[in-house]
């Protein structure tokens, strides 16, 4: 028996760029990282990219259609009719991203009323979430990740342990405007916590444990907690194994549970900051051999914005 076998389910990758040259290559670099983590999570894959912020007064939503190929052109037309500004959905495999001249809340309400066949995968100013069941390599190809630019991105490869394999069960989980969560691990008190959060008005799409962690963060942030405080709350309120990476409009945050079975490596150069489940995903990045590298300590919140790493 190996003492470390349990740490090999699911893969997390995150990359924050510090230079315009790397921003252009963000998709290519993240796809390379996901490729190295494919064997940790062959069931499904997903990404959150932060790119091209919507203009002030507008929002950006990522939509998924589970059924037959939707009429995205018609959707763009409907949005233009409803909100009075042109909208061209940017189609990416089963998903599309729309910039809508409305608040994120108004846009979501309108979509729920007029297009119930669509699921909102994310909303905010710059976030775009894409996720799908199937092998990560196929995901990267179908969603043409290599074409995507942006300031930072998170990715996940999933090996399902708690619940079924579907688009909705895949990571990242959207947790609020421009916020998302990816998780490596498993939670044991998710059913109890889901019931409690549901009473607080948090809605869930699946029976997945990671979605409960995402819902927990949504609830804490709604109650006025800062992201760092909400993550620290996880240490007392979530029971189980986890390495979390949370994407924000400005950067991302990382937390490992106090037992820290689930791996995580962080690395930084003058050009980028990265987190991954394994170094071999980071080894793909330019200059990785000479990067400053460390393992995040258990039970400690790390967050970075604008390329500044801060341990709370």
């Amino acid at each position: 028996m190996s003492w470390v076998t349990l740490g090999r389910m699911c893969g997390i990758a995150g990359l924050y760029t510090k230079t315009p040259a790397l921003q252009e290559r963000l998709g290519e670099l993240l796809a390379g990282m996901l490729g190295q983590l494919a064997f940790r999570g062959p069931d499904s894959a997903g990404v959150a990219f932060y790119r091209e912020p919507a203009p002030m007064g507008s929002c950006k939503v990522s939509l998924h259609c589970a059924g037959s190929t939707p009429a995205w052109d018609q959707l763009g037309f409907d949005i233009e009719q409803a909100f009075g500004a042109p909208c061209t959905p940017e189609v990416r495999a089963t998903h599309a991203t729309c910039v809508i001249a409305a608040s994120a809340e108004e846009a979501q309400e309108w979509i729920a009323e007029t297009h119930p066949e669509l699921t909102v995968m994310s909303a905010g100013r710059s976030i775009e979430i894409f996720k799908e069941a199937g092998p990560p390599s196929e995901f990267s190809r179908r969603f043409e990740l290599r074409q995507l630019d942006g300031t930072h991105a998170l990715g996940h490869t999933r090996m399902a342990t708690e619940s079924r394999v579907s688009t909705a069960h895949s990571h990242p989980f959207w947790t609020g405007l421009d916020l998302c969560l990816v998780h490596n691990g498993s939670l044991s008190n998710h059913n109890l916590l889901r019931r409690r959060l549901a009473r607080e008005g948090i809605r869930f799409q699946t029976d997945n444990d990671s979605e409960v962690a995402a819902g927990y963060l949504t609830w804490r942030l709604r109650e006025g907690w800062s992201l760092d405080e909400a993550l620290e709350g996880c240490l007392s309120d979530l029971d189980g194994f986890y390495t979390f990476a949370v994407g924000t409009a400005d950067g991302f945050a990382v937390l490992r549970d106090p037992i820290a079975c689930k791996p995580a490596v962080m690395a930084e150069t003058d050009d980028w900051v990265a987190i991954a489940s394994e170094y071999r995903a980071i080894a793909q990045l330019p200059g990785a051999e000479d990067a400053a590298m460390w393992e995040p300590e258990p039970g400690r919140v790390y967050s970075w914005e604008s390329a500044v790493v801060a341990a709370v």
Binding site: W3, V4, V265, E295
Partner: peptide, 10 residues
């Protein structure tokens, strides 16, 4: 350099 968890286990 550094070693991750379970170095030298068993």
């Amino acid at each position: 350099g550094n070693a991750s968890q379970c170095a030298g286990a068993s």
